[in-house]
Design a protein around this nucleic acid. Structure first.
Lengths: 236, 236
DNA sequence: CGTCCGGCATTGTGATCACAATATGCGCGG
DNA sequence: CCGCGCATATTGTGATCACAATGCCGGACG
């Protein structure tokens, strides 16, 4: 596995925090597929640090259910999403993220609007070119630069945790879909609602957007049923 | 600080998990007041283990925001609840816990009903005698034996995390109130709704119960304003 | 050729040590 | 009596080692 230099910008930050940031970004972007096994020493080597800070970062990610410790194996891996769990994720995401959008609505400024439009642009471009990574990135940025304006750190962290859980599987789905399927652009509606200052419409758009995205994942989960039990390993 | 032997029943369980369980129970019960400083070595001594498993347990509790690492000090303590944060906690608790109650409604059996009645009994007794600890315990049991029936582990864990954050402050408030103030018994309504199988009524009762409890905490937070800046230490 | 089994490598966990940063407590000077 | 500064203790963090448990791989046997 490729060695990644982890954000040398803030040398002051604690190592385990840097590892956490790097690892969680990889997970949200879906760089590490579901059921992939990882190990403390492997990750330590990957990020060029000792196993110690990795243990702390991983412990936190386990608490956030972005990683799991298999009870029988006691080995570390990226969790698999069951339909049952995905349904709960959908409910939670719908409430948390529509609430966040609702809270952000009265606080948006022209700068945010422009940024949202730009993000949506790059998102559409990524869809056109079939660049899954760019799509994931743009979609993430679109949502979270809204949430950052809600001035609600607790809800923000809840949303982040939920994305952390959905991330790996989201990547798989969108990669499979080939980015062909673009159901309807709730993002445009949302931007328009922001410009009108219509908080309720913003909330509805966000709920619809999340619902549709998760519905896609749900379909993919149901269709794939039981084709593969492949347990990919971390080694190069 | 008193030394606590941590659940010798399951000797197989990992030490850090036992420490986590013990520590989180103490926090939910409000045994450790807000702004109390703790330290890895102190806790290790308290539970009779080495600092290592404590580090892991604490790391998880930090992730769940039941503990915080002061950015300036880099020292460990129980977080203080601001009004801003408490409002978010209230919103989140209302949604998550009323949803859990709603999901549990069709799954209740006679046994659960009886247990809820018993719990409510001991809760009333605790109120009468002014036993804050017993009240906290009974109230916690009442709520979570409902949530356990919802078959929704993700939402259940969200609720647990929210209680973890509210716990220490809840204790302070109820201790101050002297358990005198008993606004209205939503628990009775809820039990009745469970017996009727009226899921919507259950949801409403739970939302009202949570709302009222948090409103109490909100009042207490506003009234106390800025009386004390005491920073209690962990030492005996 | 298939299957079991035995040894080796790798895993997570816990303990202990080192270290820089900070708080704490004591004594001195005012 | 009160504030201030310095020495000491305590803190979180990271590194390294030990160990039991499990996975993995290869050879031997049927």
């Amino acid at each position: 596995m490729k060695v990644v230099t982890l954000e040398p910008s803030v040398a002051d930050a604690r190592t385990h925090a840097q590892v956490y940031d790097a690892l969680s970004e990889d997970l949200i972007q879906g760089q590490i597929p579901p059921l992939m096994s990882v190990s403390l020493r492997t990750l330590a080597q990957r990020y060029g640090v000792s196993p110690m800070p990795v243990r702390e970062a991983v412990r936190r990610l386990i608490a956030e259910k972005a990683l799991e410790l298999q009870p029988e194996n006691k080995r570390l891996r990226v969790p698999h999403l069951t339909e049952h769990r995905l349904l709960q994720l959908m409910k939670a995401r719908q409430w948390v993220e529509s609430e966040l959008a609702y809270l952000a609505a009265p606080r948006v400024d022209a700068e945010l609007i422009q940024r949202l439009k730009d993000d949506d642009d790059t998102l559409m471009k990524a869809l056109a070119t079939g660049d899954v990574t760019a799509y994931m990135q743009a979609n993430h940025d679109f949502h979270f630069c809204i949430y950052a304006h809600a001035d609600a750190d607790l809800l923000y962290d809840m949303a982040r945790t939920l994305w952390l859980q959905a991330g790996p599987f989201m990547r798989v789905v969108f990669a499979r879909m080939g980015t062909v399927h673009l159901p309807k652009d709730h993002h445009q509606d949302m931007i328009a609602a922001f410009e009108r200052g219509d908080a309720e419409a913003v909330r509805a758009s966000m709920a619809a957007d999340v619902h549709e995205g998760m519905e896609l994942m749900l379909d993919a989960l149901r269709s794939q049923s039981e084709p593969d039990k492949k347990r990919r390993r971390a080694g190069k």
